[in-house]
Design a protein around this nucleic acid. Structure first.
Lengths: 138, 138
DNA sequence: ATGTAATTGAGATTAAGTTGCAGCTGGAGG
DNA sequence: CCTCCAGCTGCAACTTAATCTCAATTACAT
């Protein structure tokens, strides 16, 4: 189960399964599906855990490395803006260099409309972001 | 053109077109399509402008309001994580009642992969959010 | 049991963005 | 063309999310 997966990851990397990491792992498993590090930290704190904020932040990459969680949002932590033009498009964003590729696929748009109809949902706008590696960083 | 659009927006809101706002507008028009506020500020600064960082940040919502730029990224600026499970899905979110419908369309996924290949982009994960009205609120 | 590289918490630091405030200014109304 | 005041400004202090430093502690291979 999860703890074994985590331990295995740590061992292969020459890292240790400390009681702090264990606490963080267990608390994480009890979170709702989406969470942020601060929520996790607060929950530990209110349960009386002595684990520090730094340890929570330091453990997150290890949980990702062991395949137990994934980063959902942005790579790049600050706000970005775009000059408006009338052509709608979606984005591919390179996780490594931050490059943004704009693309537009009519088929994709159409398919989304169909999906909306199936759910009786009236779509107004959407945002599709594909994260990954660009040609150069791939 | 842009300046008129901006002035019109400001006037209808009872706001003023100051020289600082004008400088920011013009510098913004010279940026590459995607930019962040700090880049904009630095560019003004290096050109000898006396405009403050605060004014840049304060002007951005006005540029959005006048339809000249859009926010590209997430509203929520901090990192989020998600416990891994094997069912990937996307979201439809009702603008009115906040209801979230999870859906999954293999065709949509496939089409995305094809689009990535076309751009020589190695997609790792994506997030697709369709905003609109659910059956009840529609 | 021991040695040591990894880990810890506290608090300082950084980055991005926001806010309060005292003085300045665009532009509507005269 | 003036006047006036709501709206603006820069500055610096503040906030939030996250990272780093460092001396003390600890897991775990041998």
């Amino acid at each position: 189960m999860e703890k074994e997966k985590f331990r295995e990851f740590l061992t292969t990397k020459g890292l240790k399964l400390t009681k702090e990491r264990d606490e963080i792992l267990h608390e994480m498993l009890g979170m709702k599906k989406h969470f942020d590090p601060e929520e996790l930290f607060i929950r530990l704190k209110t349960k009386g855990s002595k684990v520090s904020r730094a340890s929570v932040y330091r453990t997150i990459p290890l949980l990702i490395g062991s395949g137990l969680i994934e980063e959902v949002e942005r790579v790049d932590r600050h706000a970005h803006y775009e000059r408006v033009s009338d052509d709608h498009h979606d984005h591919m964003i390179c996780i490594k260099c931050g490059k943004v590729i704009e693309f537009y696929s009519p088929t994709l748009e159409m398919l989304q409309n169909e999906t909306c109809q199936k759910e009786k949902f009236k779509g107004i706008r959407h945002s599709l972001e594909i994260l990954g590696y660009c040609e150069k960083c791939g």
